[in-house]
């Protein structure tokens, strides 16, 4: 697990100015995504109790927490995929809490779900080309194949015939074409071999450099620390704390208590 140790701000002491640049929520830049007081229900059961967090443009933010804390549900609730939700989800200045999932997608938010949701009745190419373009400025197919060369060779295969890692890459790749600037990635490293996890880590870093804004749900804390700017801790359907990646070492004890690791 060595390679996934934090690469940013871990070795040098944190100065005040470093803190400021590592904490975009202090800067006057308006957040791209602003979630406040988000509550959601599956039928009768109340699963989110007031999720609140902000993501600045170009930032990579993780949602950390134990199993069942509500991280996946938070992403689904942002996407409008739960039967009932209240509170506020503002994206790019627009309130989306009453919008259906397709309108949220059209606004430029894209989800890569935990189960990957590769369609078995579609070829790899059809899976890749399925999400319609919602905004100008998505990645071209050449750029996507540069990141995921494996996919190019398997275009005519059935989508679910790919290996787990390739399916994960396909699930990420297909939302990069659409022009969505906000990516919600739900456990992209789950169940994958270390070499694939590394590749996905490089992909996320690359996407950040391309200007994508990313919310990442992760169980793999080391992986999260290697790619993210800030970490929000989710517990029992609430956000209970925020730790900048640069301040991770100072808060490691607290974090272990939260995550129970």
């Amino acid at each position: 697990m060595k390679p996934f140790r934090r690469t940013r701000g871990s070795s040098k002491p944190i100065s005040g100015s470093d803190m400021a640049s590592a904490q975009p929520q202090i800067s006057p830049a308006a957040p791209l995504l602003s979630v406040a007081d988000l509550a959601a229900w599956y039928g009768e059961s109340h699963v989110l109790h007031g999720i609140a967090f902000d993501v600045a443009p170009g930032e990579v933010v993780t949602l950390l927490g134990r199993n069942g804390a509500g991280k996946t549900t938070t992403l689904k609730a942002i996407m409008g995929m739960l039967p009932r939700r209240t509170g506020s989800v503002k994206f790019d200045g627009c309130e989306l809490i009453k919008a259906p999932p397709r309108a949220i997608a059209r606004a430029g938010v894209a989800l890569c779900p935990e189960e990957r949701a590769i369609f078995s009745s579609l070829s790899v190419e059809e899976n890749l080309m399925l999400p319609p373009r919602v905004k100008p400025g998505g990645l071209s197919l050449e750029q996507i194949f540069e990141m995921f060369p494996n996919l190019k060779e398997r275009l005519s295969s059935q989508g679910t015939k790919l290996s787990g890692g390739e399916q994960q890459m396909l699930a990420i790749a297909r939302i990069l074409r659409t022009g969505a600037k906000m990516l919600l990635l739900d456990e992209p490293t789950e169940g994958l071999a270390p070499v694939i996890v590394q590749q996905i880590g490089r992909t996320i870093a690359h996407l950040k450099s391309e200007g994508f804004t990313i919310v990442l749900v992760e169980q793999n804390f080391h992986f999260a620390a290697s790619v993210a700017d800030r970490h929000y801790i989710v517990e029992q359907g609430r956000v209970i704390d925020m730790i900048p990646n640069a301040a991770l070492d100072a808060n490691i004890g607290k974090l272990h208590a939260y995550l129970g690791v």
Binding site: P101, R102, A103, A105, A110, P113, S121, M129, P132
Partner: peptide, 17 residues
């Protein structure tokens, strides 16, 4: 392809816009 995908997983197809 939309139709086949929606047959499998309508929620996800909706979340693509």
């Amino acid at each position: 392809a939309y139709l086949r995908a929606a047959t499998e997983n309508p929620a996800m197809v909706g979340a693509f816009g």
